[in-house]
Design a binder for these strands. Structure first.
Length: 269
DNA sequence: CGAAAAACCTGGCAGC
DNA sequence: TGCTGCCAGGTTTTTC
């Protein structure tokens, strides 16, 4: 479910666990995207959370001696509960126990993952990632150079985490609509000006989504239980057949790499 | 090498 | 009320 804004929203909701002691971890199902390491609980328990941050779509707990890397996959979410609350929901897989409360990881499709590492920058899930879209490293010159070298379409390029992180299927459509670029456009045909529009649209859309707590289509909720309201600001995603808010043309839905892709055939070229 | 397709899972929904 | 097939917010692995 979660793209950058949803992960960022989740992290903000659990930020209060920074400087708290991670007393222990309970794992009820080790069969996630990858099997959870046997030593993970033992090697991470009884340490202070020194920092709690996001890298790409990963949630990272910086502990005293190591880092925990958590990914929510397509359907994962966190929720906060009282330490002694024993209210289990189907697909609860992991509990992070703190002094007074716990964080529960739930994930129906089990595309998520958890890893423990001593050197996070060298970890295989982290070391190949591109720049953060909200950083200065993601700028029009950078994107333009990538576009020149790539043979694929611009939507696929934007969703490739080696190029830029955090952009998934929903926000890719929204960003390209705002930038007035057709998602099927060959990246090598884009101009520097086009790249500038895409970079600006990316930052604008992601920031706007973070501001309202992400996008809740059906099952995304922040760790404090609140939904995201960006659904009401979506311009194209899920709006096939409806009128473009700009030109009144009908929004179309097409597939790129088997993923639903939404655009206005009149505004985007 | 890069790009496309398959793979990992469960649940919900449309259609028969 | 089943059953089948398809779709879903992601990313790695395999294949071409």
């Amino acid at each position: 479910m979660p793209e950058l804004p949803e992960v960022e929203t989740t992290i903000r909701a659990i930020k209060k666990f920074k400087n708290q002691r991670l007393v222990n971890i309970n794992i009820y199902n080790r069969n996630l995207r990858w099997e959870v390491d046997k030593n993970l609980e033992e090697d991470s328990k009884n340490q202070i959370v020194r920092d709690l941050r996001r890298r790409a779509k990963y949630i990272i707990f910086e502990l005293d001696k190591c880092s925990l890397i958590l990914h929510l996959g397509m359907s994962g979410s966190l929720r906060i509960a009282g330490k002694n609350e024993n209210f289990f929901i189907k697909h609860d897989h992991i509990e992070f126990l703190f002094e007074n409360e716990k964080i529960i990881y739930n994930d129906p499709r089990r595309f998520g993952s958890i890893h423990l590492t001593k050197n996070i920058d060298k970890h295989r899930l982290i070391n190949h990632l591109g720049p953060e879209p909200l950083s200065k490293d993601f700028n029009s010159e950078y994107l333009y150079n990538l576009c020149l070298k790539s043979k694929t379409n611009i939507k696929t390029l934007l969703m490739n985490q080696k190029n830029v992180v955090g952009i998934g299927n929903i926000y890719a459509s929204e960003i390209l609509y705002l930038a007035k670029i057709c998602p099927f456009k060959n990246s090598f045909e884009l101009t520097l000006k086009d790249c500038e529009k895409i970079v600006r649209a990316s930052k604008k859309i992601l920031n706007a989504a973070i501001r309202v707590g992400g996008t809740t289509l059906k099952d995304f909720y922040s760790a404090d239980g609140s939904p995201g309201y960006f659904k009401f600001k979506l311009n194209v995603y899920g709006r096939e057949g409806l009128r473009c808010k700009n030109c009144k043309e009908k929004i179309v839905r097409e597939n790129i790499n088997k993923r639903a892709t939404f655009s206005c055939p009149s505004c985007q070229s």
